[in-house]
């Protein structure tokens, strides 16, 4: 374990060897883009800086951030989790059933639905680890299974009589423009940053993702670590869906789209924009956060600019495309500079 930690630490220190590299970092680039676009939208649209819009934007950001994290924690393993949308909606519907069908109180339902999401994630993890099949195909299958089970059990009926606290919490405004949901996503971000930087579990996750064989030889239980990554992903997906339920005030079976497909783009956009390596072993919590902020900001600004919501999706797709292309270009340029 120690050697794996050292190797990933030394990569980090090499990355940070010069201050100039900071300006080439994803986080800096994203922050720059966020500031540029925020300025453009503030100048070109009338409603962008209004208190209500900032409040609505913050609420969207907070949900997108957690969706992005739910994918990031699995990308760490070099895998992915296509079933985040299905897990999220299944967990929330489970919570709705606990409250409306079983008369359970809100805190217990909340804890159980988060654990339920974690469990569904762990099932993914166990199957990936046991079969050795790539998580793409396993989670492709479970996204269909989970969603099918959910829609069959609920008969596609929404839970609309949730306790009023749920909707009230979603509507709460701190200082008139800050949503408490934003605080939740900030809390999650800090916890994840601590996990990956300061705990041996988090370091093990990075080591196992970077090189499973080396990690195994260094004494890391790679299989158990991967299962935990998938469970964490399920838990965060359940949390994101809960936050979405607070915003809408009801648990609706279609809230993440057919078999949860609507979450795929935001889930991958944030970590990929944020510089998370798809091959595993490297994460950027701050980058993923900024990535989600940029995505929500662009969506919000384009809608204010009267761009039809249908075209916004095309723009987001183009954004993902240009982001990975720019990243590629940057690597090529950096590599050439180093060798010349």
């Amino acid at each position: 374990m120690a050697s794996a930690q050292e190797s990933s630490l030394s990569t980090n220190s090499r990355d940070r060897s010069s201050i100039r590299n900071f300006f080439f970092s994803n986080e800096f680039g994203l922050l720059f883009l966020i500031l540029v676009f925020a300025t453009i939208f503030a100048l070109l649209t009338t409603g962008f800086t209004s208190r209500f819009n900032l409040y609505a934007l913050g609420r969207n950001i907070s949900i997108d951030v957690v969706i992005g994290f739910s994918m990031m924690v699995v990308i760490v393993t070099g895998g992915l989790n296509l079933s985040v949308g299905s897990i999220g909606v299944s967990a929330v519907m489970f919570g709705g059933w606990l409250i409306e069908g079983m008369g359970s109180n809100l805190p217990i339902a909340l804890i159980l639905l988060l654990l339920g999401g974690g469990l569904l994630g762990a099932v993914n993890g166990v199957m990936v680890v046991r079969t050795g099949v790539h998580s793409f195909i396993i989670t492709l299958a479970t996204m269909s299974v989970y969603f099918g089970l959910m829609i069959w059990l609920t008969q596609a009926e929404a839970f609309r009589n949730l306790p009023p606290e749920v909707a009230t919490f979603g509507r709460t405004k701190i200082y008139g423009y800050l949503s408490p949901l934003l605080l939740i996503s900030l809390g999650v971000a800090i916890m994840l940053a601590v996990l990956y930087r300061y705990t041996s579990l988090g370091r093990n996750m990075l080591a196992a993702g970077a090189n499973p064989t080396a990690a195994e030889l260094s004494g890391v239980n790679v299989k158990r670590t991967f299962i935990l990554c998938h469970a964490l992903s399920g838990l965060l997906a359940a949390l994101a869906a809960t936050m979405l339920t607070c915003r809408t005030g009801a648990a609706i079976p279609s809230m993440t789209g057919h078999i949860g497909q609507d979450w795929l783009l935001p889930a991958f956009l944030a970590p990929v924009l944020g510089g998370t390596l798809l091959s595993g072993g490297k994460v950027s919590v701050l980058g993923t956060f900024f990535g989600a902020v940029l995505v929500s900001l662009l969506t919000n600004g384009l809608l204010l600019l009267q761009v039809s919501e249908f075209w916004v999706q095309a723009v987001l797709g183009a954004l993902l495309l240009s982001a990975v292309l720019l990243e590629k270009l940057r690597n090529v340029v950096l590599l050439q500079n180093r060798f010349i």
């Binding site: 992915l80 793409f136 795929l264 783009l265 991958f268 990929v272 798809l278 039809s308 249908f310 075209w311 916004v312 999706q313 095309a314 723009v315 987001l316 797709g317 183009a318 993902l320 495309l321 990975v324 292309l325 590629k328």
Partner: peptide, 26 residues
């Protein structure tokens, strides 16, 4: 580019679907 087909086709999925919805407005 050698970028994973998964990411590229996820992005182009949204572009194509967005153009589809932009033209038809659903």
């Amino acid at each position: 580019t050698g970028i994973s087909a998964f990411i590229i086709t996820l992005a182009s999925l949204s572009v194509f679907k967005g153009i589809n919805l932009g033209i038809t407005e659903a």
